[in-house]
Design a protein around this nucleic acid. Structure first.
Lengths: 144, 144
DNA sequence: GGAGTTACGCACTTTGAGGTGCCTACTTCC
DNA sequence: GGAAGTAGGCACCTCAAAGTGCGTAACTCC
């Protein structure tokens, strides 16, 4: 028997996750940005493409344009992720009934503010991830 | 046939993910903090418990202590996550050969600096997630 | 008149993160 | 001498996120 049974843990969780677990806004935010393509879509829509080095000016993009920039994304996941972002008020979807229908996506003000935070992550990553990789190498070398 | 076949996309990805996809440090960082328990462990180790409202002073904690605070975590996941964080140089594991062996975990300097960034996320969440929830409600209401 | 484009929808399948249960060695307490 | 606590290891299972394939409506171009 483990220190506490699974049933006990579940029961406790139901009572005490009120402020620190599951339902709290921070967890929800993490769940959002953890989606595989969310960060990339936000980055693309704020013009942080690979070659461009844009100043981060928010920019409207077409579905096909996004699909080209996010190399490897499936059409299903792109649509699904964009819908989720639209639902959360982070992007706006605009349909223009042209010859073949044109759909553009653009960051909202809320989306832009979130992207600012994501930049903080990016900066930390650029500053410290190499250090993390060194640690990983050392750790793995010690194991072998 | 979709606009590009899956095989084509894979081939392109292999050539062009150098700076914007997969291997880039930002993605790696996201993968780390997306682990279900990472954020909570970092928070606990920097004394951001639910009732305490600690000032964020980094604090060494025992395995069992963490297990109690992170309501609902399984022993396997706690061990697994702690090992990953140790491997990345974000926490230090200290074994003291007392009566029953005592193991403590503590944030490294690197871990503390990451936790700072996580606080940025937390602050955005506290400031804007309610707005997101409103958007969700509106969106869902329109659908029905 | 058939091929191509845009922006998807739908159904099926796969993959891996996470969960669960069962096990340990050592010691101390009652 | 059996129960309990500490810090895990190991093997199996589940389920949801992500991927794959195929279809579509409307129109246009050649």
């Amino acid at each position: 028997m483990p220190t506490t049974t699974a049933a006990q843990q579940r029961a406790e969780a139901k009572l005490s996750y009120n402020a620190f677990l599951e339902g709290c806004p921070s967890r929800q935010l993490l769940a959002r940005i953890s989606d595989k393509w969310v960060a990339l879509i936000l980055a693309a829509l704020s013009d942080e493409g690979p070659g461009t080095e844009g100043g981060g000016e928010p920019r409207a993009m077409r579905y096909s344009e996004l699909s080209r920039q996010l190399t490897g994304v499936s059409q299903k996941m792109l649509t699904q992720t964009l819908r989720a972002l639209e639902r959360d008020g982070l992007v706006i979807r605009t349909v223009t009934p042209t010859v073949p229908v044109t759909v553009t996506y653009e960051l909202t003000e809320l989306g832009v503010s979130l992207q600012q935070v994501m930049r903080g992550l990016k900066q930390w990553a650029e500053a410290h991830m190499d250090e993390v990789f060194v640690h990983r190498g050392d750790y793995d070398a010690r194991e072998a």
